[in-house]
C-alpha cells in the first residue's frame, strides 16, 4: 500500500505526521518512508538519523556537435524551458541550468547534431532507521544547490523507495500542489492531507484535495494544531470533496517539545493527546490495509 502525506500549505506538519506514522506503522510491518521534499528534505532530522548510501540522480544534458549543426534553429524552437538560445548567426547555445533534460532537442534535431551528455542534479539516500522498536528504511531525495527542476529528483527518489520491498510505502511530499507534489503522490492508494485551522490552511487544503481528485486518489484530512482557530470551513470542505476528517491533532506544548527534542512524539510522549490522535490515525490506516 502506498500512502502519501501532503497538504498544500507549508509548515502544517506534513513531516511530523509522516515520521510519527512511520514509527507506528512499522511495528510488525516492513515500511519504507520516502522523503520527497527534495528542495528541503528533513525527515532524517526529525528522526535524528544521517543520510547514507548516496546515489546520484543524473539527467541528460545536450551538447551540440557544431560540425553537424546546420543552424536550422529547431532545437531552440522545441525547447520547453528556454534553455537553448539561438544566436543571430543561428548557432545554438545551451544554458545548462535551465535544461530539464527532457531530450526534445535530441529527438527534434534532423541532423543528429545533439549529443547526449549528462549531469547530476540531485542525490538519493537510503538510511536504516531504528528507534525504540520502530525499524524502517528512509529514502531521501535531495536536489543539488542551484538546480531548478525538482520532478526528476522526486521521481528518482520515489523509484528508489518503491524498488524496496515493503508492506507500506509512506511518502512525505513538499508543500504546494505543483508538478513535484503531483509526481510524488501519483499512484498512491491514499493521500493524507495535513492542514491547520487557519485561512491559508483551508485555502491550500482545497487545492491539494483537488489534486487528489484529479489523480483519482482517496483522501483523508488531518487537522493539525487543532484548537488554534475555527475548523468548520475545513470540515465542510472535506465533506464536499468526499474526504473524511481522520484525525485532529491538538495544538500543544508537548508537540513542540518533542519537535525540539528531535524524536517523534509517539515514541517520546506516547501518552500525550497528540500521540493518541496520531495512534488513532495509524489504526485507521491499518484498518484499510487489512
Amino acid at each position: 500500500m502506498i500512502v502519501s502525506v501532503s497538504g498544500g500549505k507549508g509548515g502544517t506538519g506534513k513531516s511530523t505526521v509522516a515520521v510519527n506514522l512511520a514509527a507506528l506503522l512499522s511495528r510488525g510491518r516492513r515500511l519504507v518512508l520516502a522523503d520527497l521534499d527534495v528542495e528541503d528534505p528533513n525527515d532524517h532530522i526529525l528522526l535524528g538519523v544521517g543520510l547514507e548510501r548516496e546515489e546520484p540522480v543524473n539527467v541528460m544534458l545536450p551538447f551540440v556537435d557544431y560540425r553537424r549543426c546546420t543552424k536550422c534553429g529547431v532545437c531552440g524552437k522545441v525547447c520547453d524551458t528556454g534553455a537553448m538560445l539561438i544566436s543571430p548567426q543561428g548557432v545554438p547555445f545551451l544554458i545548462p541550468r535551465l535544461c530539464s533534460g527532457c531530450r526534445a532537442c535530441y529527438f527534434a534535431c534532423p541532423e543528429g547534431a545533439i549529443v547526449e551528455g549528462g549531469r547530476t542534479i540531485a542525490y538519493t539516500y537510503l538510511t536504516d532507521v531504528s528507534l525504540d522498536g520502530a525499524e524502517f528504511e528512509l529514502v531521501t531525495g535531495s536536489l543539488r544547490e542551484g538546480e531548478e527542476h525538482t520532478p526528476p529528483a522526486v521521481l528518482a527518489a520515489k523509484e528508489r523507495a518503491l524498488s524496496l520491498d515493503a508492506d507500506v510505502h509512506l511518502i512525505d511530499t513538499s508543500a504546494g500542489t505543483g508538478n513535484s507534489v503531483a509526481t510524488a503522490v501519483d499512484g498512491s492508494d491514499l493521500l493524507i492531507a495535513v492542514t491547520e485551522p487557519t485561512p491559508l490552511g483551508l485555502h491550500d487544503l482545497g487545492l491539494i484535495l483537488r489534486v487528489a481528485e484529479e489523480l483519482g486518489i482517496e483522501s483523508w484530512v488531518v487537522i493539525n494544531r487543532a484548537g488554534l482557530g475555527p475548523e468548520d470551513g475545513h470540515v465542510r470542505l472535506a465533506e464536499e470533496r468526499g474526504a473524511r476528517v481522520a484525525a485532529r491533532i491538538p495544538y500543544s506544548r508537548e508537540v513542540v517539545e518533542s519537535y525540539v527534542g528531535g524524536s517523534p512524539i509517539v515514541l517520546s510522549r506516547p501518552g500525550s493527546e497528540a500521540a493518541r490522535a496520531l495512534a488513532g490515525l495509524a489504526a485507521m490506516v491499518e484498518e484499510v490495509m487489512g
Binding site: 531552440g76 525547447c79 528556454g82 538560445l85 543571430p88 535551465l98
Partner: peptide, 21 residues
Amino acid sequence: PGARAGSGAAIRAVQKLVDEG
C-alpha cells in the same frame, strides 16, 4: 514571449530580440 513563459523567461526575451535584429 518571456512574460508568459513558465521558466527561462529571460532567454525567451533574448531570443525575441535576436529574431527582431
